[in-house]
C-alpha cells in the first residue's frame, strides 16, 4: 500500500481519489466517487440477445443491475471466474452497473500534475475512454473515464434514445 493512502490528511482541492484495479496484467484506475460498492463475483442471470461481455443481470438489494465483463469487451487477460474475481458496482448517471475485474488493488490520490495524457495506441481501451496515465509506485496506471465508457454506445448498456437525457 502506498504511503499516501495511509495518511488521513484531507483531500486537497486539486487532488482526486481513484480506485485502481487489475485487468489481466494491466493496472487501471477509475474515479472513486462513482463506486457504490465492491463485491465478489456471482453468477448473473443471462439476458438473451445481449453481447457476450454483458454477463447478465444481478439483484443488488432490489435493483436489477447489469454486469459487464470489461476483460471480454477489451480482450484483456482471460475471462476466468473464481473466488478472487471482483465486481465493482458503479453508480453513474442514476444507474447502477457492475463491472467484472480481476482484482482491486488500491486507492490512489492524484493531482492534475500527476496525470499524463493518454497514449494514442498500445492500450486495450479506446483513448476516448481514457483520462490519462499516471505512475504509482513505479507501476503504470491507466485512468479510465468510466462515466463516458458506461454511457458509450460501445457498451450498449443504454437505449440510444435514452442516451440523450443521460448526457445532459
Amino acid at each position: 500500500m502506498s504511503d499516501s493512502t495511509l495518511q488521513q490528511s484531507p483531500v486537497a482541492s486539486n487532488e482526486k481519489e481513484f480506485l485502481s484495479f487489475v485487468l489481466g496484467k494491466e493496472h487501471y484506475a477509475l474515479d472513486i466517487t462513482t463506486v457504490k460498492e465492491i463485491r465478489g463475483y456471482e453468477a448473473a442471470t443471462k439476458i438473451a440477445n445481449a453481447p457476450a461481455f454483458i454477463k447478465g443481470v444481478l439483484n443488488l438489494r432490489g435493483d436489477i443491475v447489469p454486469i459487464v465483463d470489461l476483460r471480454l469487451k477489451f480482450n484483456v487477460g482471460e475471462a476466468t471466474y473464481n473466488e478472487f474475481t471482483i465486481v465493482i458496482m458503479l453508480h453513474v448517471h442514476e444507474r447502477i452497473v457492475g463491472v467484472v475485474v480481476d482484482g482491486v488493488s488500491d486507492v490512489v490520490r492524484l493531482t492534475e500534475d500527476d496525470i499524463l495524457p493518454p497514449p494514442e495506441f498500445g492500450v486495450a481501451f479506446d483513448s476516448q475512454y481514457l483520462l490519462g496515465l499516471s505512475e504509482v509506485d513505479d507501476t503504470m496506471v491507466i485512468l479510465v473515464n468510466i462515466e463516458k465508457l458506461i454511457t458509450s454506445d460501445a457498451l450498449a448498456l443504454v437505449d440510444p434514445n435514452q442516451n440523450m437525457s443521460l448526457a445532459g
Binding site: V57, D63, V65, R95, V97, A156, V158, D159
Partner: peptide, 9 residues
C-alpha cells in the same frame, strides 16, 4: 430492467 439496463425483447 430499464432502470439500470435497457428494454429486452
Amino acid at each position: 430492467l430499464e432502470k439500470h439496463y435497457k428494454k429486452v425483447a
